[in-house]
Design a protein around this nucleic acid. Structure first.
Length: 488
RNA sequence: GAGCCGUUAGCUCAGUUGGCAGAGCACCUGCCUUUUAAGCAGGGAGUCGUGGGUUCGAGUCCCACACGGCUCACCA
């Protein structure tokens, strides 16, 4: 019991260092190379040339062999071996070096050489403690495996699991590639409110909060849509936002309450233009980040090369279930047709919801290769423009890759009176108990009444795109700090 | 919200039919000047997720709860 644990031992060392006049957390550090640069510079040396370098990083391993000690230090660029020798450092500094702990940050300075086994190494001529660590690192061979600890202490996960680090580096590259793609096409990146007096643009339950000074209820946004369209009305013809949406709903391997969505709006475009943009964007990002337009997801080869398959929802459902939704154009007859085929989905609020359910059950599980599903029911699409000659359908598509719904787009509804009607219908659902329906947004209608050009709009989940590109099956593996329940 | 599975040392994991709580890494002591999962010798380390129960005796069986994972439900 009297035995000191590892943390207590390290605190005792800290006290000893301070007593000896050493600052264990000095305010500044300096180095001449990152570990990767030092290794590259050494390899580039000519015959007979020497390289003296100072590198800094976290001590990640130590092999003490009496009067000499090998160790590795790691920085963001990689790791490098260092060799401390008593005859080079002097007896006292060498003893002090051996008192360092794995996980401490140090900088070391010295000339570089190659060991007998061929590893490029810095001969430590002097060193400085940069930051003392009080806790040990996870197991050096297996890394941190406990999923809960990995999420709660992601820094340890990143430190000890290289694959995890690579997933998040790839995530950042994907987001950068999206930006580059859209910037190059003249889209303007904007920021719209996250705290909104009224939520909208999607069907989801919001998080509710309160502003004290205004004494007013505010909602965390569930979508960017209605603000971005205001910008289209304002004459910013191509806008996009990559931001967080917040939906107060269940958590699963595909849903985190806070997630990242790219939304974009392009004036004088329609949903056909947006389809071409989507397939080009995914292919371009894949090419840039992964170096190919083919990806492997959970062992399946997926070809993102444009053009992608396009099929109407009517045809897709007909192929999968034998039901032609065009011939059963009201809820009762569709419901009868669905039951006749042996499905039972329970009572749904309207014709469109039933179609959506039928689609989810019969078509979606088979959408492995990238597919655009087009022409959605109007009653589940309150912000999309009607399809000419098809009063029950709108110009909308969703796209699916690896059986995942990856994004949603439409020719935007710019008829303010029609929009008011759609909101009113949704508001009736809302009072009828559909919590996730749109509330009436008078301020947005007013904006539309000032005139919005024909516009195509798109939203796609960045997290799901990252899952696809990094071959991950859980959204928590692509979000640095996924939402977890409090431990106590 | 439901079902199934998991929770043992700082980390990775064993733990038999209910019978003294184990290993590797990490840590500590000693030896060791080219190691790299360094090596050799010795040592310390546990609220077995939490709380009840059954039992002479519970890491192990039963109940409840907590947290996590997966599946489902939910989910534009």
């Amino acid at each position: 019991m009297a035995e000191l644990d590892q943390r207590e031992r390290r605190i005792a060392k800290l006290d000893k260092l301070r007593a000896a006049g050493v600052d264990p957390y000095p305010p500044r550090s300096s180095c001449t190379h990152t570990t990767a640069h030092a290794l590259a510079a050494f390899e580039a040396l000519g015959e007979g040339e020497k390289l003296h370098s100072r590198v800094a990083g976290r001590l990640v391993s130590m092999r003490v062999m009496g009067k000499s000690t090998f160790a590795h230090i790691a920085d963001g660029s990689g790791r490098i071996q260092i060799l401390a020798r008593q005859d080079v450092l002097g007896a006292e500094p060498y003893q002090a070096f051996k008192q360092l702990d794995v996980a401490d940050f140090i900088s070391v300075e010295g000339s570089m050489f190659r060991t007998h086994t061929g590893e490029v190494t810095v001969q430590v001529e002097n060193y400085t403690l940069l930051s003392k660590a009080l806790r040990p690192l996870p197991e050096k061979w297996h890394g941190l495996q406990d999923v809960e600890l990995r999420y709660r202490q992601r820094y340890l996960d990143l430190l000890s699991n290289e694959e995890v680090r690579n997933v998040f580096i790839t995530r950042t590259r994907i987001v950068s590639a999206i930006r580059r793609f859209l910037d190059a096409r003249g889209f303007l990146e904007v920021e719209t409110p996250i705290l909104q007096p009224l939520y909208g643009g999607a069907a989801a339950r919001p998080f509710t909060t309160h502003h004290n000074a205004l004494d007013q209820t505010l909602y965390l946004r569930i979508a960017d849509e209605l603000y971005l369209k205001r910008l289209i009305i304002g004459g910013l013809d191509r806008v996009y936002e990559i931001g967080h949406n917040f939906r107060n709903e269940g958590i699963s391997t595909r849903h985190n309450p806070e997630f990242t969505m790219t939304e974009l709006y392009q004036a004088y475009a329609d949903y056909n233009d947006i389809m071409r943009l989507v397939e080009e964007l995914y292919a371009a990002v894949a090419q840039e980040v992964l170096g190919a337009t083919h990806i492997t997801y959970q062992g399946q080869d997926i070809d993102l090369t444009p053009p992608w398959r396009r099929i109407t929802m009517r045809q897709a459902i007909l192929d999968a279930s034998g039901i032609d939704i065009a011939t059963v154009s009201d809820y009762a007859s569709l419901s009868a047709a669905v039951q006749a085929k042996g499905y039972s989905f329970g009572k749904l609020p309207n014709w469109g919801k039933l179609i959506e359910k039928l689609f989810d059950e019969t078509v979606e599980p088979n959408l492995t290769q990238p597919t655009f599903i087009t022409e959605y029911p109007i009653d589940i699409s309150p912000l999309a423009k009607k399809k000419p000659g098809e009063p029950q359908l709108v110009e909308r598509f969703e796209f699916f890759i690896a059986n995942m719904e990856c994004g949603n787009a439409f020719t935007e509804l710019n008829d303010p009176l029609d929009q008011r009607e759609r909101f009113a219908a949704a508001a009736r659902d809302y009072t009828a108990g559909e919590e996730e329906s749109h509330p009436m947004d008078e301020d947005f209608i007013t904006a539309l009444e000032h005139g919005m050009p024909p516009t195509g709009g798109l939203g796609f989940g960045v997290d799901r795109m990252v899952m696809l590109f990094t071959d991950q099956t859980s959204i928590r593996e692509v979000i640095l700090f996924p939402q977890l329940r409090n431990k106590d």
